[in-house]
């Protein structure tokens, strides 16, 4: 296999030469393409406004995500408190089910790792 990849030195030189000429043609084309873009940037105010509005959007998104997180957390804590106070049997059953699930899931994963 390795022998198939070997080229005679002349061919290799020719190949390298052609690749270099391809690279220089690409660079030449890209240099021309650059000229489409003006060297001047928009005004500083434009950038400042863009940054300001971006920060506002980012803050809004953070507040929204925090609100969703708090709502879900309150829902879970509320549910837990309700079951502890009103239905302690159900709470204990749920706790037991979670422990059994963790033990089973953990042992299955360990078995899989050992078999691999």
């Amino acid at each position: 296999m390795a022998d198939q990849k070997k080229f005679p030195p002349d061919d290799q030189q020719e190949n390298e030469k052609e690749l270099l000429s391809t690279i220089s043609e690409i660079s030449e084309g890209l240099n021309k393409l650059e000229k489409i873009v003006p060297d001047q940037s928009p005004q500083l105010d434009w950038f400042e406004y863009m940054i300001y509005s971006q920060k506002q959007q980012y803050r809004k998104r953070l507040v929204k995500e925090l609100a969703v997180f708090l709502f879900i957390a309150l829902f879970i804590v509320g549910g837990m408190l309700f079951t502890i106070l009103e239905m302690p049997k159900l709470f204990l059953m749920l706790q037991g089910a979670v422990i059994v699930f963790i033990v089973l899931y953990g042992s299955i994963r360990i078995k899989k790792q050992v078999n691999m």
Partner: peptide
């Protein structure tokens, strides 16, 4: 303002 200047310099 500094952010804007940084962007203005690098935009093109």
């Amino acid at each position: 303002r500094a952010f804007a200047a940084l962007f203005q310099e690098n935009y093109p």
